[in-house]
Amino acid sequence: MVQSAIVVALVYWFINVLDQSFLSWQCLSRPIVVAPVVGLLLGDFHTGILMGASLEAIFMGISAIGGSIPADPLSATCISVAYSILTGADAETGIALALPIGTLMSSWNAMLTPIFASLAPYWENLCQKNIKAFTVQTLLFTTFVQPLVNTVVLFIAVAYGIEGLNAALAVLPAWVMTGLGAASSMMTAVGFAILVSMIWSNEVGIFFFVGYVLSSVTGLDSLKVAIIAAAIAITMFFGEKRHIDTKNAMANSSAATAVNDEEDFF
């Protein structure tokens, strides 16, 4: 079991890194791609392909939006394909096994999210001081540090079962988890606050609240809010244009009169 756990964890890690740096998000990490790869590595390519089809059909409608993943298709695929090939179980058994592991991974992740978020000011400073160091460090971080916890959790869960990991989580008081979760859902406000303080002007600042109300009260999605925003912005642009044109026309005519005055004078 330990040997296959290593394979599963390594594939998980490798695909995780590759998905973030090659082609596009959620392309190489889909079951239809991952399952044949796991199958090939565990010596049963054919089963991998067949399971890829059935797992993709199951996970096709599940999308990860806003960072909350109902069931992580990548880890579920790694686990269920490995189990099927090694124990002869069918895809459903594998997924049933993968679901608690997925939940466990997101609990461990929930602890790290605010800690990774706390690094944002460090990155902001580093990219201004030394872009080479920034490049190297962000790439190393995203390759080795960010997927590390998930990979280790996956390895332990497949190799030794999930009891130990659950016990380790249970040691933490409940308020620590709640607090970290609350902190990470408030963290984005820091990013927005920096951005708002950079583009705020008293003249148009009130439009922040227009956008806010459109979302929080009417629940419109981004594209619809953007259309309303564009309509206001374009109206404003042409209003301003007319103002500038009039100003220029007036400046021109007064310049012309000034010239005439001079001619009269001489």
Partner: peptide, 20 residues
């Protein structure tokens, strides 16, 4: 000015949908 209006409206929108 127009870009400021649109930018601020979109941040307002994103604040409502993201910050919790």
């Amino acid at each position: 000015k127009a870009a400021g209006v649109m930018g601020l409206m979109m941040i307002g929108f994103m604040t409502a949908s993201t910050v919790n």
